[in-house]
Amino acid sequence: MSSRDQRYVELFQVGKTYPNAVGDPFTVVEEFDLIMRRGDVVSLIGHSGCGKSTVLSMVAGLNETSRGSIAIGGREISGPGPDRAVVFQAPCLMPWLTAYQNVRLGVDRVYPHATSAERHEVCEYYLAAVGLGDCLYRLPSELSGGMQQRVGIARAIALKPRLLLLDEPFGRLDSITRMELQDVILRTLDRESITTLLVTHDVDEALYMSDRVCMMTSGPRARIGQLLELPFCKPRQREAVLEHPLYYDLRACLVSFLEEQDTQRGRLQEVEFVSRIQQEVETLVENEVVRSPSPQVANSTTELAVVN
C-alpha cells in the first residue's frame, strides 16, 4: 500500500458550527480527525443527534464545513460529486422513475462516453448484484422498503465511487431485511473493495460491517472518543463474527462507551477497559491470527483521544 492509499481519506480538524440567531453559535462537531485507508470500512457510531450524519454529509459535500478540511485521494473536496456516492436513510428514489431509470440517472452521469448498451449493462449488473434482477422496470411504489433501499444501494455503487457513504441505510428496515441488506453490501464491498464510511447507531451492525469502529462523543462539540480496530477476518461470515472469542468483549466495550456518554461517569474505568481490549486485539493482529490482509497496528495515525 502506498502512502497515499494509507491516507486515502483524510478528515483534518473538521468542525461544523451553525449560527444561532438568539445566542452563541451552536457547534455540532469539533476537531474531528479521521484517516481511512483505501478499501477500509469505518463505522461512525454514537448517540442520535451527536453529529454522525453531519460529519457524513460534510464528507459528501452536501453540507459545508465550518473549519478544517476533507481530502480524498490527496485532493481536497469542494461540493458534492458522484465520486462520493451516498446511500441515504430513506431510499430517496425518484417515485416517477422505475428502479432501472433511477440507477440509470447516475450511470448516465458517470459514464458519459459509454454507449447506451454499455450503460444498460452496468445498470442491469448492479441491480442484479443487489438481487433485483427481475424487478428492473418496477416503480418504487411497487417495491417493498427493503427493495427500495436495494435500489438505492445499486444506484450508489453503480457510480463506481471512490468513497461510499452510508447514512444509517438500514435505519428504517425490519431486522430480517436489515440482515439481508448488510450481507448484500458486504458482498458488494468484498467484490469492489470500495472505501466506505458507515454511520450507524447499531452496535452489532458496526461490529459486523466494519474494519474499524469510530466512536463519537455526544454532542454538542462532538469529536472522536475512541477508535476500535476489529479483528474479524474478511470476507465476513456472520456466524464466524458472532462466535469470535473477542466479539462480546468488543461489543461490551462499545456499549459501555455509549452508556458512559450517557452518564459521564466511570470514565476512568472505561478508558482502562477499552485499552485492555484494544491490547488484546493488537496481540491477535500481530500474530496474524485473525486478519488476512497485512495488519496495521491500530491507531498508528490517530491517537486515542481519551488516552491522551
Binding site: P82, V86, F88, C92, M94, L105, G106, R109
Partner: peptide, 27 residues
C-alpha cells in the same frame, strides 16, 4: 430536499435537474 440532494450528488446539469427531477416532482 432529498431529491435535490440526489441531484447534487450526481452533479446533474441544469437541464437534467429540471426535466428529470424538478418538473416530474412538481407535476
Amino acid at each position: 430536499k432529498d431529491y435535490l440532494n440526489v441531484a447534487r450528488v450526481l452533479q446533474l446539469n441544469f437541464r437534467d435537474r429540471l426535466f428529470k427531477i424538478i418538473i416530474p416532482s412538481a407535476l
